[in-house]
Nucleic acid binder design. Structure first.
Lengths: 113, 113
DNA sequence: TAATGCACTAACTTAAAAGTAAGGGGTTGA
DNA sequence: TCAACCCCTTACTTTTAAGTTAGTGCATTA
């Protein structure tokens, strides 16, 4: 029995915090397709710095969305994959994605007035 | 015919940008319930500063999610309401909310180990 | 007469996020 | 021998977001 106080954040903000880094949606997106190595992600997202890539991968790992597997070989091989739990975000992403696409449509139409 | 280049952002990021201010989810949330005045929102979200409230309301208005109605009376009366378009975000919010709640559950369980 | 409510705006400061640059350590290939 | 690969870490700077404080103008209320 714990009597801890649940000062839970707003669940919308939770989602935004989990995916809210500048590169997190893109990292997550690539991992939906398949397991990727650090260097794969660097190639797929050329504009991200190593520092930010590391940091965001750590964040996603802490949230339990991805799993980091180190293969003790030389040169080092580290693989990142969505966890089973991480996959539960996919339908959320799909809904967000659909709305976001529509919104982008809308905005490019209005700018083409 | 316009030949503009569509450098559209990732639709996930679109949603995050639209809702991504510190107080935007909460503002939006209160407006789902009903139309609110500026001072109503101040009362409902005591921690927000007037500056940030104004700024976020302007952002949401620019995105077309909310409508600002000025009643030319003294003292001034300004009402904020979700637009019809803004209401299309509700189901997205619901999906995000469900996942976020579950995630918060999960995290408070693991911290109660 | 003085304070309060309303819906802001502007100038400034602080905090958080992201970017930049350099290094490390062991191994293979040229 | 020397660079390249791999997966980072650290220290530092820049950029962006958010917070703080003060002020506006008119009208009602105390």
């Amino acid at each position: 029995m714990n009597t801890m106080i649940h000062t839970r954040e707003c669940p919308i903000e939770t989602v935004i915090n989990v995916l809210g880094g500048k590169w997190k949606p893109m990292i997550y997106w690539h991992l939906i397709e398949s397991t990727k190595r650090f260097s794969d992600l660097e190639r797929l997202i050329p504009a991200v710095s190593q520092k930010m890539l590391t940091q965001h991968l750590r964040d996603l790992e802490k949230e339990g969305l991805i799993v980091r597997t180190i293969h003790p070989v030389v040169p080092p091989k580290v693989e990142y994959a969505l966890s089973d739990y991480g996959k539960t975000l996919i339908p959320v992403l799909e809904v967000m994605c659909a709305w976001g696409e529509n919104h982008n449509e809308r905005k490019s139409e209005e700018s083409a007035s």
